[in-house]
Amino acid sequence: MTSWFALLPALQTYDGSQTAPLFPPSASTVSGEVDALYAFLVGVSIFFSVLIFALVIGFTVRFRRRPGVHATPIEGSLPLELLWTLVPLAIAMVIFVWGAKVYFRTVRAPSDAMQIDVTGKQWMWKMQHPTGQREINDLHVPVGVPVKLRMISEDVIHSFYVPAFRIKRDVVPGRYSTTWFEATQPGEYHLFCAEYCGTKHSQMIGRVFALDPVEYQAWLAGAGAAETPREAGAKLFTSLRCDTCHNSQSGARGPDLAGRWGGKSVLRGGGSATFDADHVRESILNPGAKLALGYEPLMPSYSGQVGEEQLLALIAYIESLAAPQGAKEKP
């Protein structure tokens, strides 16, 4: 597939000296695939555009009106109609399947990905590394390590876009969205907000620094680690008194949260919900919306008391409760 791309070697990289490059830098594991798909579509488009131009202009010249020469009446032709229905259909289906394949690559993060939390707000990006370092508008990542972003907005819809990685994902208020990438080339790349979000939409931009792993470690050390999200979450879990109801004792007022991540939560009135970030978030802010089966609707709403970053911390903590609650690490 990448051989398509190799047809355009002169355009392959953007080195800053070219005044009008045709491709952005290609710096992630999917960017080559996206470029190959693009090159294929450009090929298809050139083929059909040239075909149509040639037919239309050719016929216009060849059959131009001349005195005494008349048009030949032609009704149509079923074989031709079939030809130009089925050939485009077949090509379209190829594009569809190929595109869907690439897409699945960009949505499904590898399970060993390192997770970074991203919060968007008018008009800045806030990031937190799993080791606790925080950044604003800049993002440092190691090359060769898959990085998964868990993103949410504090206000309106934004969109996280790194052209060099060919990834983009809307960052929506009220629900988490994720995307992932694995940088392949060290360098500094644009980070854009791609969804219109108000006055300074065009200034909601930043930089992504892809560092080789050693440099990344050095950067982490220099960036001053704060608490990790999980530690912060564990503290919140006690200070907000979640642990008074959610613990492993029998007769606890709320369900035990340990080892639940990724599983199902059976709901009152039938149905179930996946126990994921969105479910935990909703349970904290709007406990009445979905009630766990077998428990009274006792849980108070924490809406207005916890911000997006605290929610992300709580979620990181609950996610880490892989084992039964007794075995959890105490902060």
Binding site: R268, G269, G288, A289
Partner: peptide
């Protein structure tokens, strides 16, 4: 379908 419980209440 998102909030069956709340709607019933």
């Amino acid at each position: 379908s998102s909030y069956p419980q709340a709607f019933a209440n």
